[in-house]
Amino acid sequence: MKNCFLTTLFLFLSSIVLAQTSKTYFNAAGDKHLAGEFDLEILKSDSSFQTWYVENERLFNLSGKNTDWKNAFENSEVEILIGTWCGDSKRWVPQFVKLWNELGLEESQLKFTALYDGKELYKQGPNGEEKGKLIHRVPTFIFTNKGEEFARIVEFPVNDLETDLAQIALGYASEPNYRAATYLLELFESEPLDSVYKNVQTHFNNVYRLVGKEKELNTLGYVFKYSDRMPEALLTFEINSVLFPYSPNVLHSYGEALMDNNQKDLAIQLFKRVIELEPGNETALNQLKELQDEIDHDEERQTEGEL
């Protein structure tokens, strides 16, 4: 009886500590989410996350193949940036942790950070935990040794989790998903924007060879936009609009960024093109009217001033 009481007390106190150290917030839909660094135990014990964690953990099973390669990870750490609102995070993080445990590796080697959803802090941490890490998709698994990154998995495994980890351990890691987005992220980190524009055709050709679906750069554009990097966002959206000139969604995203940057004439051109491709797009129709009304109002004020 005494042991039972002590166990219950320990679990209760542990839950209090977790509640005090893990930042939570509620999104626009009223759902509870995590932000910033957190202890894995909260995903396993908090009812807001426990269901999807347990369900997805069950999906993974070791293949039964030789796993001697696991020894290569003994001195490694993995930083895992997730969104508790993200379907891919819900699926792959529990499976990754289960694989890590079944390999006999230590959970203490894993560091967990949750990023916000929503526009104002889109894929950002409360203390800028994502900065300098080239994060554009979640989950992202960053493998380091003595602080130096040597591999990463972006959003989902290229093959399967066990194969991807084996390749990383053996020094033959698959190139992470979203190569075009990674190219632009690394480019903007290494060169000033005026230099990028001087060689924009070369960079466009490189992106063209690497890009997958239209959402790849569209998502990256929003990451830049909502982290106060509007010049990078505009160039990313512009490149995407050339790659996918018949996509209403791509053109609309670019138009909205131009609108936010007060480039009204160019935004109007984009919204008109969106409406040509998708006549029933109410958002584009309303934004086009709003911009045209603003321009008409500005012209009236200018005329009155001249008089």
Rank of each mutant, 00 (worst) to 15 (best):
L258A: 09
L258M: 01
M259P: 04
M259Q: 12
M259G: 06
M259I: 05
M259W: 03
D260N: 05
D260K: 08
D260L: 05
D260H: 03
D260G: 10
D260A: 12
N261V: 02
N262S: 15
N262G: 07
Q263P: 05
Q263Y: 04
Q263V: 02
K264P: 01
K264D: 13
K264W: 03
K264N: 14
K264E: 09
K264M: 06
D265C: 00
D265E: 15
D265M: 11
D265L: 10
D265W: 02
L266W: 07
L266D: 14
L266H: 12
A267L: 02
A267V: 03
I268P: 07
I268Y: 02
I268L: 14
I268V: 15
I268H: 05
Q269A: 11
Q269N: 14
Q269W: 05
Q269P: 02
Q269F: 03
L270A: 13
L270K: 15
L270T: 07
F271R: 03
F271D: 05
K272M: 11
K272W: 00
K272A: 09
K272H: 04
K272L: 08
K272G: 03
R273T: 09
R273D: 08
R273I: 01
R273E: 11
V274Q: 11
V274L: 11
V274W: 07
V274N: 09
I275M: 11
I275R: 07
I275P: 07
E276K: 08
E276W: 08
E276P: 00
E276L: 11
L277R: 00
L277P: 00
L277I: 00
L277A: 04
L277H: 00
E278M: 06
E278W: 02
G280F: 05
G280Y: 05
G280S: 11
G280C: 04
N281V: 02
N281F: 04
N281L: 04
E282T: 06
E282K: 04
E282S: 10
E282A: 11
E282D: 09
E282M: 01
E282G: 02
E282Q: 10
T283A: 14
A284C: 04
A284Y: 02
A284G: 01
A284M: 02
L285C: 01
L285W: 02
L285Y: 01
N286F: 07
N286D: 13
N286E: 13
Q287Y: 13
Q287G: 04
L288E: 09
L288W: 08
L288S: 12
K289C: 06
E290F: 02
L291C: 09
Q292H: 00
Q292N: 11
Q292S: 05
Q292Y: 01
D293I: 02
D293P: 08
D293C: 07
D293A: 14
E294N: 01
E294V: 00
E294Y: 00
E294D: 01
I295A: 09
I295Y: 06
I295L: 14
I295N: 04
D296W: 09
D296I: 12
H297N: 14
H297T: 15
H297R: 13
H297P: 01
H297M: 13
